[in-house]
Design a protein around this nucleic acid. Sequence first.
DNA 1: CGGTTAAGGTCAATAGTGTTGGCATAAGGG
DNA 2: CCCTTATGCCAACACTATTGACCTTAACCG
Lengths: 244, 244
Amino acid sequence: MAKQVVPETERRRRRPTRQGTVLSEKLIVRTALRMLREHGSTGLTARRLGAALGADPSTLYRYFAGLDDLTRAIGEELMGRALDTWTATGEWRSDLRALGRAVHASYLADPQAAVLTASRVTGRPREIAVDETILGILRGAGFPDADAVVVYHAFIDLTLAFAALDAGTLALTDEARAADEEMWRSTYAELPAGTHPHIAATARLLAGRMNHSAYPVVLDTLLNSAAEQLAWAHARRHPDPADT
Amino acid sequence: MAKQVVPETERRRRRPTRQGTVLSEKLIVRTALRMLREHGSTGLTARRLGAALGADPSTLYRYFAGLDDLTRAIGEELMGRALDTWTATGEWRSDLRALGRAVHASYLADPQAAVLTASRVTGRPREIAVDETILGILRGAGFPDADAVVVYHAFIDLTLAFAALDAGTLALTDEARAADEEMWRSTYAELPAGTHPHIAATARLLAGRMNHSAYPVVLDTLLNSAAEQLAWAHARRHPDPADT
DNA sequence: CGGTTAAGGTCAATAGTGTTGGCATAAGGG
DNA sequence: CCCTTATGCCAACACTATTGACCTTAACCG
């Protein structure tokens, strides 16, 4: 059984569960997100999700090919949320910055889910929509296709990579985070200047920095570099007589 | 049992296993890396590792507090390998670039292990050594402490984030990768120009790009930006009369 | 409406997982 | 050479994802 999953759009009969709830992909994904929030990034199990839905765990396999498939659907949901909070202004740089931050923020809003999904390509509609949007912004700004593709690649990978990394620290349980911070204080902050002069000298500054994400800083350097690249490409096509 | 683990340095008695092998932290970590390479990033299990070592699975708990602890030790091993392949030249930019690439390469050399460890801070000696080295390069180059900390933070997070992301695609089993690439061709490459004009227009270029890592490109933009920052900081302290 | 079909629910079972308490044996210090 | 105890093994527990068989009932067609 459960070999083939009926696509959500062709689903016809909706039999209520023994406990009364009527299932749907959306309900399952939303419940899964809640489970992740409540029980941590390893707390999403078929049994637990089934119990929360008032359904047998095996029922999930009528909607998803496996937990892996469900995971991709969760990622798609996060991408969709990011796209929904974003609006275009027409200025390519601020549009890209806003879009990157929206994706990053959307993942960080559900860190436990982000940990599971950020490094996976889903190939689902809203993810494709994000890609199309980014390429559209770049090409609309005048980037030659070859340059647009390079910037697009760096932009999307950078954003997802930081989403995964930053979500990782947020997703720790309170307990684990406390242990981590304690570890930090007891090792990094206490290193003797004799063996580790540079860490010792900057320990105070480090403590203030490491709590924040480096994503905004790196994103801006990428956008700056892209802007220069665009200027060159433009100059090459419309040479300024004063430059010769 | 297994509540407290004896530190490797204080280990005295080494009783051979029933099948003759003599255990050690190093041997366990190396064997774990092999298991990951052979069986994928989810293929490291206590039972399997025990079998490969010729020991009972529970014996592992005499060496590590849990599989989680073992995972951190694996990350530490990858960091150490990166540091071993790197040598300083004294030129801060090329040193940083080489170090970043060494870490990135070390993780990608064991992608399945990298997936498990790249987003975790171990706090172990060789990881700290890498941090100390980076800060040393930056401060030695003349970066004021505040700037050095910002660049350090961006540098290390960028490197680890891309290591995790890029390892993720490399770590897929041949089967899963084939499915992924097929998915890519059947969705992205086939999107009609009507609904997704920008992806359609650049599909060929994208296919060539997405196989490579965006890390080198982004790393260089970060180093360029840092160099400018350094020039400004330097100019502020030694104003050039010609600039006024 | 009434009959038929199969979607979509449940149940039970399989083969795996991390982890721990209890026990035994042999290594190495005194 | 004896004693202690570190370090190995065994058995058990409470989990996990997933599947095949079964059964109920929703929805379509005449």
